[in-house]
Design a protein around this nucleic acid. Structure first.
Lengths: 234, 234
DNA sequence: TCAAAAGTGTTTTGCTTACACCCATGC
DNA sequence: GCATGGGTGTAAGCAAAACACTTTTGA
């Protein structure tokens, strides 16, 4: 994004925010950006070009932040509380050390209705890239998120509920898991998303019955215990 | 809405559209407005005031069109195709016989991202009221909708899917059925929403097991056959 | 008395849950 | 050898689906 295009090339008062989920080391993670100067963590987001579909804008933001394309992405809710950006009364966006015009700053400080998306990505393939507003981009464990900008914590909560819901209908492990994975790893993913323990035997039965993964005939060596079988998504 | 407030009191480029479902005479119906001059039927919709929540805007539109308040209402999707209002290339909105300023007309002809809501109302309690753009407001059978404005047919389809989905989790018959109703009537509602036949005995068992309705000890006289028992929601 | 809709229970099926033992590996 | 996690099958429970006969009513 170009500082000069703010308030000109984009639709007014509409933004998108992406909750990008990844899975690593047995925990669910979310990609966050640390905003300059105000030192607040926030969801990756952006604006919609005047002739762009919101879905395309979300894909654009996603690929800019992760350097990935063709990511699993789903709109889940639009947040329109007129005071959603006023949760932090003492936060002054105009402190952003970016060369914005006065018009651009007024534009950004205005009200935004934001369309929420969630995405699932392969943690190992992501190269986090900060945007114009931020100095850092990195993964955070879902259980240990910092204080977030505006209503972003609320958006994350809603995204998790939507993800949980979607997982019931659609096995989306293939977007998050690495090429080769073990069943206990996939089970852990389900457990952290659904927020409950699952029986090992029942889980195997269910997943294998879906015919979406196949055994590779290899095992993962190097663990401290019995080597688990490796699988891949079809 | 005041013609002079168009383009001033509302957020630019954002609208809401409501798919209002009612149930009458064994069929699911949708409330539509007939736009003046262009003679095209459309969903009831509106704009969001500069300091208003989208949910509140939807409630406002709903009560303006139905003269009901406190209606079951749920946001289901936001439609953002940049060409969604260009489906009818030959449609000239500026023909609307309403005294709009040139600025207002340009504003209306611009691109809109619209937030879709669906609502459930008691057919018998609704007094359909046209809005500023329309000359008529009435119910249409879902199976026999006319050609609709813009992408409104697509919005209706998506609303029906969302409604079907919601019905699985939440028995929302009480918003649509009259005070007194029979089980076959309620069953028919489920059948038209879910799009499939349901076994009578299984349906009774399930609904009565939910403890959300109770028999009134009366029957509906006057039918050509055996009088069905009347029930009410708790 | 007949046609059409409404009331009523039981069986079967499929999916989910519960549950226990042996196996492989690194320390 | 032992602690730890991984692999494996069966029985029980529960909710949904299948299924047929009798009753009431107006014509």
């Amino acid at each position: 994004m170009n500082p000069n295009s703010i308030g000109k090339d984009y639709l007014d008062h509409i933004s998108i925010d992406c909750v990008i989920f990844g899975f690593h080391n047995k925990s669910l993670r979310v990609l966050l950006l640390k905003w300059k100067t105000i030192n607040r963590w926030a969801l990756p987001g952006g604006f919609i070009k005047k002739n762009e579909h919101a879905d395309a804008a979300a894909q654009r933001v996603l690929s800019e932040r992760t350097e990935l394309s063709n990511i699993f992405l789903r709109q889940f809710h639009t947040f329109s509380d007129p005071d959603r950006n006023k949760a932090d009364g003492n936060l002054d966006i105009s402190l952003l050390p970016v060369r914005f015009s006065k018009e651009a700053i007024d534009w950004i400080k205005g009200r935004f209705v934001t369309i929420g998306y969630f995405a699932l990505v392969d943690f190992n393939k992501v190269k986090p890239v900060p945007d114009l507003f931020s100095e850092e981009c990195r993964w955070w464990e879902l259980e240990q998120l910092p204080v977030l900008l505006y209503d972003h914590h609320h958006i994350v909560d809603a995204a998790l509920i939507a993800l949980r819901d979607a997982l019931q209908y659609q096995p989306m492990g293939k977007y998050v898991m690495p090429k080769k994975f073990t069943l206990p790893e996939l089970q852990k993913l389900y457990e952290v998303i659904l927020g409950k323990k699952i029986d090992r035997r029942n889980f195997r039965k269910k997943i294998l019955g879906l015919n979406i993964i196949h055994p590779l005939g290899e095992t993962r060596k190097g663990g401290a215990h019995r080597s688990p079988d490796l699988y891949s998504f079809n």
